[in-house]
Amino acid sequence: MIAYDNDNIAKVEQAYMLKTECLFKLKKKEEATKNNLLLAKYYLDFAEGIFQNDIQGALRCVNYYQKGIKLYRDNGEPQKAEIAHKRLVEIQKEIPQIMVPFSIELDIKGVVDNIKINMEGLTFEEGLIRLTQMFVFEKQEDIKNRVIGEFKDHPLAHMFGKRCT
């Protein structure tokens, strides 16, 4: 299974884990440790193969690197874990360059024109009072609840900024 399904990570991962479990039950701890180290190497090799110029591959790559690092650390190979961790940091630095930016632009020209019309001919003090009457100021708790609610409903929308013109 491990040798023939190299491209199907779910099958290979499960095969390695079952083999490790069997080796532990047979009290072959040394062979089980070697098997876990082979799985860690497989994770890193697979991760390098899927780290391409798309964000899904890059994010999956990070996940497999983390699994491989944990296996290296748990099975007595801290130096390999450190090398893999350095590569993981490099990959994480490259991810923002892979992400495809998109933006939402809001046209607030009408709002600005409305403010200009309503402020025309007023003194500074009158203009300030009019301005405060034009906008509703929200309570901090209301803003907090709205932001948390929007994040729960649309978590991906908060990963990208908004720009007003």
Results as ranks from 00 to 15, higher is better:
M17L: 13
G57N: 10
N63M: 12
K144W: 10
N114Q: 13
V62L: 07
A40C: 02
G127K: 02
L88F: 08
I95F: 09
G68D: 05
N118K: 14
P78K: 07
A10Q: 11
I95C: 11
F137N: 06
I2P: 01
I104C: 11
D54W: 10
G127L: 02
A81M: 07
P101N: 14
F151L: 12
F46W: 12
K19A: 04
L26C: 00
K86Y: 14
E141M: 04
M159V: 07
A3Y: 01
G49K: 09
P155C: 04
N8D: 15
Y16Q: 03
F151V: 10
K29P: 00
N35W: 00
G127E: 02
I69M: 07
I55G: 03
Y65L: 03
F46C: 03
L156S: 11
C61L: 07
M119T: 02
Y72T: 04
G76M: 05
H154W: 08
L39S: 02
E141A: 04
L23T: 06
N114F: 11
F151A: 06
E13A: 00
N114E: 14
K86H: 15
G68K: 05
H158F: 10
N75S: 10
D54Q: 13
K144D: 12
I143E: 05
V111I: 15
H154S: 06
K11N: 05
Q56F: 07
Y42Q: 03
K41W: 03
N35M: 13
A15E: 06
I9Q: 01
R60K: 15
R146E: 13
L44W: 06
K70T: 12
C22I: 05
E31M: 07
R130N: 09
N35R: 04
V111R: 10
V100K: 15
E31N: 07
M99P: 01
L131N: 13
V62M: 04
K11S: 03
L106P: 04
E48D: 15
K70L: 10
A47K: 05
T20S: 01
T165S: 02
L88R: 08
T132Q: 14
A81F: 09
K67M: 11
Q66N: 14
K34L: 10
M134P: 01
Q133M: 03
S103T: 15
A15W: 00
E90F: 12
K29T: 10
Q92F: 04
T20C: 00
E90Q: 15
K34I: 04
